[in-house]
């Protein structure tokens, strides 16, 4: 569906995307994971055929976006990071006008809008002004809008950023259903749990480059231990305690607020720490996540902002 080779975008001296290679297969959910400023949104706009690449090759549905942009966009659904809905129009009118931009016939759209409102669980908001919607509703409407042309590929840029947990789970559920119908999903996110929930396969981006690629499970297996012990001794003691934990776990990482001990048997290692006379203020044994992978690969944590 999508093939990128040495894909590059630079603005003057600033290189936003520095030669990335990737491919997306039909029907899969492909994730682009990374912190803010990693080049995810820039990559996404190139995939959406609305931003011209500086160098490299890009093929979307077998076509080159720099020459066939309008044709490619007819097959794409785009859910941008900011909702950019038309706030002067109602929910249904937003879907209608967007469908008309594709030149879809009016009668066809009327039926399609009913389906989309049902899918987005917005049927009872049909005639509400967009301004009156909650953040989660706006995002579901933006997704419904992106589906109006029955796209082969849906591009979602940070789909759940700024939503509360309940709204996020509702959205994930909708995206699962879409995937079941055979729509290819490309998702950028800086949330690890989102990537683990949604993506069959993902690339980790940092500073415009791809630093790892694989399924969430493979990445965790390859770049992290099975479990992680998180211990906190207070911010002034963490570094000092860390120097005396040699031999416990596979390795450890000191963050300003806590120490992470990578471990195959978390509970045992936690007891070993206590046995050395260090009593943590709080402790937690958890399964390793993509967060740990990212920390390992970049040496930095994936802070929210």
């Amino acid at each position: 569906m999508i093939h990128g080779r040495q894909l590059t975008k630079s603005y003057g001296d600033f290189v936003a995307v520095a030669g990335v290679d990737f491919h997306v297969e039909r029907g899969e959910a492909f994730g682009i994971l990374g912190p803010n400023g990693a080049g995810k949104s820039t990559t996404m706009r190139m995939l959406g055929a609305t931003l011209k690449r500086t160098a490299g090759d890009l093929s979307i549905l077998g076509r080159d976006p720099s020459t066939d942009g309008p044709v490619i966009r007819a097959y794409l659904g785009v859910v941008p990071q900011d909702d950019n809905l038309d706030t002067e129009l109602t929910v249904a009118e937003n879907l209608y006008t967007y469908g008309r931009y594709f030149g879809l016939p009016r009668a066809h759209l009327r039926a399609r809008i009913d389906e989309l409102l049902d899918f987005a669980q917005l049927t009872d908001k049909r005639d509400a002004k967009v301004e009156a919607l909650s953040g989660g509703m706006k995002r579901r409407l933006t997704i419904a809008r992106g589906l109006v042309n029955e796209p082969s590929i849906l591009l979602l840029d940070e789909p759940t950023t700024g939503l509360d947990p309940q709204a996020r789970h509702l959205l994930w559920d909708r995206l699962f259903r879409l995937k079941e119908t055979g729509v290819t999903l490309v998702v950028t996110t800086h949330y690890m749990d989102e990537a683990e929930q949604l993506c069959d396969r993902l690339v980790v981006m940092d500073r415009g480059r791809i630093v790892a690629e694989g399924t969430p499970l493979d990445l965790i297996r390859e770049h992290s231990s099975r479990e992680v012990v998180e211990v906190r001794f207070g911010s002034d003691r963490n570094a000092e305690v860390a120097t005396q934990l040699d031999g416990i776990g596979e390795r450890h990482e000191v963050l300003p607020d806590r120490i992470l001990v990578y471990s195959e048997a978390g509970e045992d290692d936690l007891q070993a720490i206590v046995a050395r006379g260090f009593m943590p203020v709080t402790s937690l044994v958890r399964r390793a996540s993509l967060e740990d992978v990212f920390l390992r690969l970049t040496g930095r944590s994936l802070a929210d902002e």
Partner: peptide
């Protein structure tokens, strides 16, 4: 203001 041209641009419009 509302940047709706950017939404339009994601469709097959030029």
């Amino acid at each position: 203001w509302q940047r709706m041209f950017f939404a339009m641009r994601a469709t097959s419009l030029t």
